[in-house]
Structure formats: C-alpha cells, structure tokens
C-alpha cells in the first residue's frame, strides 16, 4: 500500500482539474506543487548531502530570469526557459560549487546567503539586460485557464519526485548521505567529496531553476524583489523542508502544503497579516524544539502519545 502512495496521489491530482474547482483553489494547488519542487530540490543538497543553503533564491531567480530574458530579448516563448535552465543552472551551480563548496557547515550557509543577495542586487542594476526593478512582463499569457499550468507543474513535481527516488537508491544517494554524515570518513572510503557535493548542488540548482522558469510563465511577471528575496524564497524554502522533514521523500511535499496554506491564511488575517514572517519565525523555532526531524520525520513520535492511550485502555 505504502509503495503505491505516490501513484495514488499522482492519479488523484491528475483528476483534480476535472473537478471544476475555483480559480483560487487551483492557484493554491499550483503553488503547493511549485513549492514541493523547490523543497525537494533543496532537500537533495541540504537534507541528503547535508550542505544547508540559505541562498536558493539565487537558483529560483536565475531560472525565472532565464525564461524571462529569453522571452524579452529573443522574443521566443518563455517556456523555452525550462530546457534552457538545465544548461544555465548547471553552469551557475558549477561556479557556485567551486567557490562555496570548499566551505563547511555554517560558512557554506553564509556564503550561499550572500549569493542570493548578490544575485538580487546584480539583477536590479543590470538594467539593460534585466529591466532592473521594472521587471519583466509577459504580455501574451499562454493560457487564461489554470488547468494546463497545473498539469505542467504536476509533471515537473512528479518527475522530480521520481528522479530523487532513483538517485537516492543508487550509488549517488549513498554518497550524498555519507558526505552528510562524515565528510572525512567519506573521503577516506574513496568518495570524492568535492565532486559529489558539486553533483548534488547541480541537481538541486537545476530543479530549483526549473521551478523558477515555471514561475515566470505562470505568473507572467517577475522582478528582482519577487524572485530573489531572502525571506520569501530562500528562507521559506528551508522552512518548507524543515516543517515537512529533511531527508525524507515526502517531507518537502508535506511542508509545501502546510507552508502555502499557512501563508495564505496568515496573510488574510486582519492586523497580524503583515507580520507573517514573524509568525513563520516562531513556527520554525517550535519545529526545531519539538519536531526537529519535521512532521514526516517525526510522525511516529507524534503518534506515540495516542498509541499509549490506546494501549492503556485496551
């Protein structure tokens, strides 16, 4: 049964557009799927390989701008951004990897944090190329209806899930986790830690970039503040994975569901809506204190008090 869970969920989602849901609900579902992709992508590097990044907005934004700039400067469909991302984001990841991956732990995290900000500021200032703070707008949207956007992001999410499953059950997955657990031990067991960390970063970067390119197509407008922000992208990405459970297949998906709904709910609350980042911060602290492995990672522990009661009553 558990083995078929992904198939069942995928099949269930495939029929969602037939249910004639409101445009708003479809929008929320699309965001959930997009954040699942970003979370899964981050999870490869941060969860499995143990290289915690606070700069995934850089990859997301690069992906979005790849699509945007192809459209704006070359006049081709922004959908070409998705395949183009594979090349562009690999190149970016190699550069970032070369600079940052020699750093360990907190130093790596700080370097990636700086990376996101560098990308934002650079994009703001390269006005001729990126339109700066004016942003890039797609005038003729592909579809008005949300159905096809939903299917596209659903297939990207399913593909990402499958890819991660395949990777994590292969040599590559073993190497990622070995690096997370002990880099020096991994190195002496014959694992070229620099090389495999770079591979992990490339996978993570490309998948995040694809989500960014999708975002450009779906939203039809981007500017540096929308796609490169520290809080709304980089930190939210970390939270999606932490809430759901790092280094688990379903953690980023569960985290995306919770975070997207939470963001929508909190934002619509009167008075405190503007403070949603504060509330997220508090949630993050609670998570770290009480469910450090996330909801998926700790669900057995979360269920335990109930089980005890049952045992006692029977």
């Amino acid at each position: 049964m558990k083995k078929y869970l992904p198939h069942i969920i995928f099949a269930g989602l495939c029929v969602v557009p037939l249910m004639d849901l409101s445009s708003y609900i479809m929008h929320i579902l699309i965001l959930v799927l997009m954040w699942s992709v970003i979370g899964m992508a981050w999870n490869i590097l941060g969860g499995y390989t143990g290289q915690v990044s606070f700069g995934h907005a850089a990859f997301f934004g690069f992906g979005a701008y790849t699509a945007g700039i192809l459209y704006y400067h070359l006049g081709i469909s922004a959908w070409w951004g998705i395949p183009a991302c594979v090349v562009i984001l690999t190149a970016l990841s190699l550069v970032v990897g070369y600079i940052c991956l020699r750093l360990r732990g907190a130093y790596f995290a700080l370097a990636t944090l700086a990376l996101g900000e560098i990308c934002r500021v650079t994009t703001e200032n390269l006005v001729d190329f990126t339109q700066g703070n004016m942003g890039i707008m797609i005038r003729e949207r592909t579809w008005v209806d949300k159905t096809w956007y939903f299917y596209i992001i659903l297939f990207i999410a399913a593909g990402t899930f499958l890819l991660i499953k395949i990777v994590m059950e292969s040599k590559l997955g073993y190497y990622f986790v070995a690096i997370r657990e002990d880099q020096d031990a991994a190195e002496s067991l014959g694992i070229d830690t620099t090389f495999y960390k770079t591979i992990s970063l490339c996978l993570s970067g490309v998948l995040t970039g694809i989500a960014g390119a999708f975002f450009m197509n779906y939203m039809g407008y981007i500017d540096p503040g929308v796609v490169f922000p520290l809080y709304d992208i980089s930190i939210t990405t970390v939270m999606v994975v932490m809430v759901g459970g790092a280094a688990t297949y379903w953690g980023p998906v569960v985290g995306a569901v919770i975070m997207v709904f939470l963001a929508e709910e909190i934002r619509s609350l009167p008075y405190i809506g503007a403070a949603h980042m504060t509330i997220f911060g508090v949630i993050l602290i609670l998570i770290i204190l009480f469910v450090p492995n996330g909801l998926v990672g700790d669900y057995r522990r979360l269920l335990k008090p109930f089980k005890h009661k049952k045992e006692a009553s029977s």
Partner: peptide
Amino acid sequence: RPHVLCKLGVARTFQVVRPLQRM
C-alpha cells in the same frame, strides 16, 4: 587526496571511530 589513495588500494580505519551515524 584520501579518496584517490583509497581508489589506489589503500584503506584505513579510524582510531576514534567515525561511522556514518544515521545509516
């Protein structure tokens, strides 16, 4: 580097054990 030596056939154990803990 150590991984190259390992590939060349030199393996080692650590005095202070370093298992990959959560595996």
